[in-house]
């Protein structure tokens, strides 16, 4: 069952320097229970795209959307502020990289979870407290009764992220958006949090949109992946397919430039030349053409369409529809 369907989404932000469009025509869908990854370099639009899904940026004003977002039969772009609040509170939760700044430093973590529970259900304080402790336990926090009374700063980064996850879960959301939730954590702690996220996905059949710049994390937990570049999804498909036979040159280069534990250390690392162009200076044609080693005149002139092949989609002129692979 399709839970979320996004079609030709554009997000425009009006700033005092003019209009920028961090999301430029993104289409995808998320099935119930699916864990899908969004990867891309810094500035590729991952956060703006995911926040657009629940219109979190509206608060800053001067935002304009084009396209369609359908979540569970709701037309998200047509919802009123009150309906949006309900959507964000009940159906879709979001967690961020920096847990500490999302938590209120003045309240104990227990009280913050109790508050979250009581905005969804009319429960007595005592019952809500019991539930809060259960959520803390569920996320693997040791001695949750004691931790209930801790203030955010008294917890380690990993524990703070667990508290954020506990808070995101109280409404039993259908979709969890996780925006780089493990980027600030150490690898051994990251491994624990990823295990937790997978466990929750199986237990609650919750769909997860997992945003990261780390391809290794994607391979570990996501069944499908979308690769973003300059506000567009340039390739998407099942994780194994993307890792084993990436079609877009950008995906290939991203995968190749990752140092691996078994790579040859004497060879130079494949690198992508140049840097990501700025939003105010988006290249004509294919947006990756300025850095692509295979770019042709066509690539520099005309934006490639999205080609589909067996669940894999790629936006690149080098793709040969008949062959189902690369042009020679």
């Amino acid at each position: 069952m399709t839970l979320l369907k996004v079609e030709q989404l554009h997000t425009h932000i009006h700033t005092n320097k003019g209009r920028v469009s961090p999301v430029r025509g993104v289409s995808f869908s998320i099935e119930k229970g699916e864990v899908t990854g969004v990867v891309g370099e810094s500035g590729s639009g991952k956060s703006v795209m995911s926040q657009s899904l629940i219109r979190l940026l509206d608060r800053e004003g001067n935002i304009e959307y084009n396209g369609q977002i359908h979540f569970d039969n709701k037309d998200v772009l047509a919802l009123s502020e009150a309906e949006l609040r309900k959507l964000r509170g009940n159906d879709i939760s979001i967690i961020f990289q920096d847990a500490l700044s999302s938590l209120n430093p003045l309240y104990t973590v227990g009280n913050q979870i109790v508050e979250a529970i009581r905005t969804h259900q009319s429960l007595s304080k005592k019952t809500a407290r019991k539930q809060a402790i259960e959520f803390l336990r569920l996320t693997g926090i040791p001695s949750p009764e004691t931790r209930f009374n801790s203030y955010p700063h008294e917890l380690s980064g990993g524990m703070q992220q667990r508290v954020m996850i506990a808070m995101a879960l109280v409404s039993k959301p259908k979709l969890l958006i996780a925006d780089e939730p493990t980027t600030a954590l150490d690898v051994t702690i990251q491994a624990q949090i990823l295990d937790l996220i997978i466990q929750l996905n199986t237990e609650f059949e919750m769909s997860i949109l997992f945003i990261t710049h780390d391809l290794g994390v994607v391979r570990e937990i996501c069944s499908s992946v979308k690769v973003m570049y300059l506000g567009q999804i340039v390739e998407e498909g099942p994780t194994e397919t993307i890792f084993n036979q990436p079609l877009h040159p950008y995906t290939k280069l991203l995968l190749a430039s990752m140092p691996k534990l078994n790579s040859d250390r004497t060879e130079p690392l494949p690198a992508i030349t140049g840097t990501v162009p700025s939003l105010s200076n988006i290249p004509k044609g294919c947006s990756f053409s300025t850095r692509c080693p295979y770019a042709t005149d066509l690539c520099r002139e005309q934006e490639p369409p999205m080609f589909s092949n067996d669940g894999q989609r790629v936006q690149c002129w080098l793709y040969d529809e008949e062959k189902g692979g690369w042009l020679d």
Binding site: S156, Q190, L215, G216, R219, M258, K260
Partner: peptide, 19 residues
């Protein structure tokens, strides 16, 4: 080393607890 996610599939040795 086993916690390093470098895109290859491998067995992880989970470490319990916090630093």
């Amino acid at each position: 080393f086993s916690s390093v996610l470098d895109g290859s599939k491998k067995e992880r040795i989970p470490l319990k607890g916090e630093i």
